[in-house]
Design a protein around this nucleic acid. Structure first.
Lengths: 198, 198
DNA sequence: CCACTTAGCTAACTACACTAGCTTTTGAGC
DNA sequence: GCTCAAAAGCTAGTGTAGTTAGCTAAGTGG
């Protein structure tokens, strides 16, 4: 029996292809094994079962997403940077729906690799917000709002939630404009009204 | 063999309980059948398989969500109404995570029941936007932005995506404030810059 | 009371995840 | 080059789940 020369990286890449083509919910070890030209149980030499594969895919996706968004932001600041990262974010989610869906999974507390990737992604947002003069603990609310708006939009779009025959691109641009306005006048004082930390 | 007296409604309610308790991805016909005190294949007399059950659950959830949000908006307008529906929306998603996740599924084109439920939900948003003076085709972008922001927030929250030890409630309130500001100064002219319809 | 409809059942098949345990390849060290 | 241990791949087998087919019993309209 000739050896296929699989690596964990290769397996995850094939998994990404399956997830992008069929949807994350249709990602199966069986499909990945077939793509790798290997019997299903052989994958267990490289990956910790289906859940482990999903986690590995999440790490891959978060890294790619962070890199793409980071790349889009270089040389830009303020409103310009915001639109650039927002467009890059949505473009990634559209081009790689399965990976993007996988990237939403939160890191397990002890998972250093995954946590680091998530931190890298967060750093890009932090940098853009710094361009608005929003820094430190006050930026947390802004980052959450940004992520929520972008994720919500691409998630609904992917789910087919925008049925009306209007330009989805234009709707997204207006949403980003609204975020830009909100960030431009971000009221720092509000944070003192915060309730108990959770 | 004594009859269990099942109805499609009862089956969907049990499915909702399973989904809320274990997560939508862990909704299985086996679990629902056990809860109903019936063998798994018996469910097929009331429901069109797992996918049909998911669709039925989506309809139930959209109806409940529309009713809850609508209830929250009565007697309010403008900023007041916006905060009320946003809070009701998030409260529903938090209290019924499985149903909420099911509600994201878009209606199948020919599905009148589902489409009607979705239209009812949309009508509530339209009414609130009317309070801001945003009406007609121009409201589409605003509705999309609103839904995106709220859905994104609750989805990330449910996924455990907010790891920092800051108040999530406060972050949400600030996001809704930002939306309020954006809607208050909604630039009607922007819609003329729209690209081709999709 | 009979016939028809319907709810529920068992049996059987498929697909998938996972484990156990085996064989073969590969490559490091002598 | 030979040896041997680690690792990569395999087959076989188990458990869970969804689905269909076809049977039987419980209601229900005439």
């Amino acid at each position: 029996m000739p050896r296929a020369g699989l690596t964990p990286q290769r397996v995850v890449e094939e998994a990404a292809a399956v997830a992008d083509a069929a949807g994350l919910d249709r990602l199966t070890l069986a499909a990945v094994a077939e793509r790798c030209g290997v019997a299903l149980p052989s994958l267990y030499k490289h990956v910790r079962g289906l859940d482990g594969l999903r986690r590995d895919l999440a790490v891959l996706a978060v890294r790619e997403l962070a890199a793409t968004v980071s790349q889009a932001a270089v040389g830009r600041a303020g409103s310009d940077a915001l639109h650039a990262i927002a467009d890059a974010y949505r473009a990634y989610a559209t081009a790689h729906p399965g990976r993007y869906a996988a990237s939403v999974r939160a890191p397990t507390p002890g998972d250093a690799e995954h946590l680091a990737a998530a931190a890298d992604a967060l750093a890009v947002f932090s940098a853009v917000l710094a361009g608005y003069g929003i820094t430190g603990p006050d930026a947390i609310d802004a980052i959450r709002g940004l992520r929520a708006a972008m994720h919500g939009f691409v998630a609904l779009e992917a789910a087919g939630g925008f049925g009306m025959p209007q330009s989805v691109d234009a709707s997204y641009a207006r949403l980003v404009d609204a975020l830009d306005t909100a960030l431009s006048t971000w009221p720092a004082g509000r944070s003192t009204l915060r309730g108990a930390a959770s």
